[in-house]
């Protein structure tokens, strides 16, 4: 009884939509305005590119150093995020301790925090006079700010939450009875994590890793605040773009379009794995 009624109802709606209700313009105009706001700058960027000079621009010392540094720091960040973030996602998904919701709330703060505030917070923690930075400097002679390590710390700080939230969601969706079965088969919690949980949330891990890596690649505010802008040491691609904009606009555009291309690639890979 119900099914035919519904089918008739939706068919009518579809017919009406195709015939073109004039009132739809009230929605379609702002919709296309939104598309323009998002797409026009990207098209403009691509139009600005001096395609013939692109290889040379990217090979310039400033650009090439930045590319290498970004590759190094973002891949290090990704390793740290995978090694620490996956167990954290597991703890948030499976933990029964009453403090778990609070931990989850804290972990998500960097998602919405302005990155520059993150940079100030990192300085407060690891700066020479910081909570941890002070003792590190006094006892071990280690200073973190304005080093490549600081770049990685800044990237981890902003990228980890993306990964953890994505993987936690995937792990929550996993049937807990698999854990029980694995336990009766003799698997320790660590073995269950490695051989049951991680393989079964593989797509979630891939998606989270891509998101986190893209976020780390684009990191600017926390990096410049906490690590500074030293070519070859802390000047990642976004910082190099910002610096080059004054001296060498062509290099800035070249690096920008490179990052655009990389981001589109990541999106394409994600769609393949995930959305289709």
């Amino acid at each position: 009884m119900t099914t035919p009624t519904t089918r008739t109802g939706s068919a009518t709606a579809a017919t009406r939509g195709r015939a073109g209700n004039p009132r739809a313009w009230a929605l379609l105009v702002p919709a296309w305005a939104a598309v323009a706001l998002l797409v026009v700058p990207l098209v403009a960027l691509v139009l600005q590119v001096d395609w013939a000079g692109l290889p040379e621009d990217l090979a310039s010392p400033l650009a090439w150093q930045a590319i290498r540094l970004s590759a190094l720091t973002t891949s290090t960040t990704l390793v740290v995020v995978l090694l620490l973030g996956t167990p954290l996602a597991w703890m948030l998904a499976r933990g029964t301790h009453p403090a778990i919701p609070w931990v989850r709330a804290l972990v998500t703060v960097p998602l919405v925090l302005p990155p520059v505030v993150g940079g100030v917070a990192l300085l407060a923690a690891y700066g020479r006079t910081g909570v941890l930075g002070g003792p590190l400097d006094d006892w071990l002679g280690i200073t973190l700010p304005f080093t490549t390590v600081a770049v990685v710390l800044a990237e981890v700080f902003v990228a980890m939450p993306f990964y953890v939230i994505s993987v936690e969601g995937a792990m929550r969706g996993l049937d807990r009875r698999y854990d029980g079965i694995a336990a009766t088969l003799g698997a320790s919690p660590l073995r269950t994590f490695l051989t049951v949980v991680v393989p079964m949330v593989g797509p979630g891990i891939a998606a989270g890793a891509a998101l986190a890596w893209a976020r780390a690649l684009g990191e600017f505010g926390a990096t410049i605040t906490f690590a500074g802008n030293f070519p070859g040491r802390t000047q990642t691609v976004p910082l190099a773009v910002f610096t080059a904009l004054e001296q060498d606009p062509d290099a800035a555009v070249a690096l920008s379009v490179l990052m655009l291309a990389v981001c589109v690639l990541v999106l394409a890979v994600l769609r393949r794995r995930w959305l289709t």
């Binding site: 009875r177 698999y178 029980g180 088969l185 698997a187 393989p199």
Partner: peptide, 25 residues
């Protein structure tokens, strides 16, 4: 333990699923 659904690990063959217990032990 056997439940209503087989709950086999989808990324392992039937052989590796069955070997999972002995391996774990």
């Amino acid at each position: 333990l056997v439940l209503a659904e087989p709950m086999l690990l989808p990324h392992l063959s039937l052989r590796d699923n069955t070997a999972y217990g002995p391996r774990s032990r």
